[in-house]
Design a protein around this nucleic acid. Structure first.
Lengths: 348, 348
DNA sequence: TTGAAAGCGGTACCAT
DNA sequence: ATGGTACCGCTTTCAA
């Protein structure tokens, strides 16, 4: 009897039962070429001694580590943490695990993370591009080397693969239409960096609504945060510029959790009355936006479901050796939740 | 020249350079027993062909996978996501990676996660107990088998190892004292499940302040959420009971992000005026509590630093074969941020 | 200074 | 139905 509780191996079982390692290996995996009686002996013994196949040995053989690399902006961000939670729920169930890395909106970290993840020989990658990312050559290289990737949230068309996004066009369209129907006409948009897919999509929804309602688009009403609002200054500058305009906007649509919360804090500091002086509609995944001051009208993305869908598609890609004939772009619906911060301007 | 970009191995290098695998292995690791000239040849070749040692093979040999298992309550929780972010920052830098599992406050999941993580043969564990956890035998077993553990946030003394916590006693003490000095005397406390270390510590700070000020402790003012406020009902029940008392409390201290936010939402729904009818001081790690309605007085935990400290201690434990002579209980300071929700009762 | 060989824990092919 | 053996990629004696 051993004192240390070192994990037991196939060899241990083989010796104990006077069998060969090969036989034991097959028995534990319930191979048809092993007699029931032997299987039972082996499995009973394995059970009793708590045998667990050594993952690393298995990985070394098959090159499948059942692990998935994730690149996200930042963990402490309502949207991303919900996405992660969704991913975790499917990987957990399918016996994969996720290795999480944060880009913190920097290309440099994104590249380092990518390198780290490939070194870990992940079986696949779930990627949301950082706001700084312009060229995606580093991803192209990895993808070309045979590692499947699914892009979510901030995606790119330059690599042919699955994508999972929320209906950014629709979300912003609805938000803009809602503001217009509440008599707001000078609607500004504070958004992330120009390069991101989400930025142009959200812009598209915004432009579409304005155009439909015959409101001209004022480029000065559109403000980009090139670092996604990583620091408040970026947002504050945008707001200052908007407030200084002669034709000051009467409403703002903010394009991410961070920007939304940052903008609210800044406007509060500046004692701007919402929605009296300025209405707000913001993308946000905060769990209880009704406790904000004022109650916030939000565009909510199905973050958890995005995480789930992305993970499911990736695992499918990993487990089917044959490439799918067609790649999906899955668009999940956004939801406009109307609250006080965009209340109708004039009582009828 | 190969077409596929399969990773290159030691053997490939050995063949190309007409050396033995053993020599190449030593050369890439800069062993003293290899001549400089050979080292240069090998490393140049390795460099050029982008050689990366196969992690799984290394793991199989050493039993050190440079991976750390984390058990947390839930990723989408401000406190935990900040903790994770801190952990990630140190593991990233030390070339470890974290495997994250969520207990979702269930013992059952906690046990499954633990099993999963040991199967992944993590080198160590960072654990915060679930609110349901009463017995910690499953952790004892794993710890006894030689896997180092560092507990953070919700800790236990039943296993002798490092602990990292915030100053829960001090935080609640300060919060309570603050309320008392603002003329509140009937102070309630809505907290997590009885078994948790954080619960008893927070209670201790609360009791200490009351006692110091000569205010008797009313057990009916203390409400436990056995599932940590996982669903709002739990919190709503607690609040209902408090509001129904003849001697209704005039202030509440809420003991976690979830409970705090839940309580605010419920009180808002019930149209209870804060702090007029009820003052609130809440544990919270939300980034901008000043945009809550009303501005919330918070007790803020150094979540990021807790994550960092826990990860650092664990890695030390992993890398030093010898057990430390003494285990640390590191207590990080909490911070009381006074805002409107606990404004002084009577103007002087 | 270099290399042959054993082994980490499994898997899979081919005999028996 | 069972077992011998080679091998996955790397490390580590031990000889040469």
């Amino acid at each position: 009897m051993k004192l240390t509780s070192d994990p037991i191996t196939l060899k241990d079982i083989a010796i104990a039962l006077n069998l060969s390692v090969a036989t034991v290996s097959k028995a534990v995996r319930d191979s048809h070429e092993i007699s029931d009686i032997t299987k039972k002996r082996v499995n009973d013994y394995a059970q009793k001694h708590n045998y667990r196949p050594n993952l690393m040995a298995q990985m070394l053989r098959h090159k499948n580590g059942r692990s998935i690399g994730v690149i996200i902006g930042a963990i402490p961000n309502n949207f991303f943490s919900d996405v992660l939670s969704g991913m975790e729920s499917v990987t957990h169930q399918k016996n994969y695990h996720i290795i999480i890395t944060q880009s913190l909106e920097s290309v440099e970290r994104e590249e380092k993370n990518l390198e780290h993840l490939t070194w870990r020989s992940v079986d696949g990658l779930l990627v949301s591009l950082s706001s700084e990312t312009k060229s995606i050559d580093h991803f192209k290289k990895v993808h070309a080397s045979g590692i499947p990737i699914v892009f979510y949230d901030r995606v790119t068309d330059e690599i042919k693969t699955h994508q999972v996004v929320s209906d950014n066009i629709g979300g912003t369209y609805l938000g803009t239409m809602h503001l217009i129907s509440n008599q707001y006409t000078r609607i500004a948009h504070i958004t992330s960096s120009k390069e991101l897919s989400i930025t142009s999509e959200r812009l598209e929804g915004y432009a579409k609504a304005l155009k439909e309602q015959g409101i001209p688009i004022n480029q000065d009403y559109i403000k980009y945060c090139n670092h996604g609002g990583k620091d408040l200054d970026e947002i504050e500058t945008a707001i200052d510029e908007l407030l200084r305009m002669k034709q000051r906007p009467d409403a703002i649509i903010t394009a991410s959790d961070r920007i939304t919360i940052g903008a609210l804090a800044i406007l509060k500091k500046k004692k701007i009355v919402i929605p009296g002086q300025l209405a707000i509609v913001g993308y946000s995944n905060f769990s209880a936006p009704e406790i904000f001051q004022p109650e916030l009208t939000t565009i909510r993305q199905p973050a958890y479901e995005i995480g789930r869908a992305a993970a499911e598609l990736l695992i499918k890609l990993i487990e089917n050796k044959r490439l799918p004939s067609k790649f999906e772009k899955r668009i999940l619906p956004t939801e406009l939740m109307i609250r006080d911060s965009s209340r109708a301007k004039r009582k009828k």
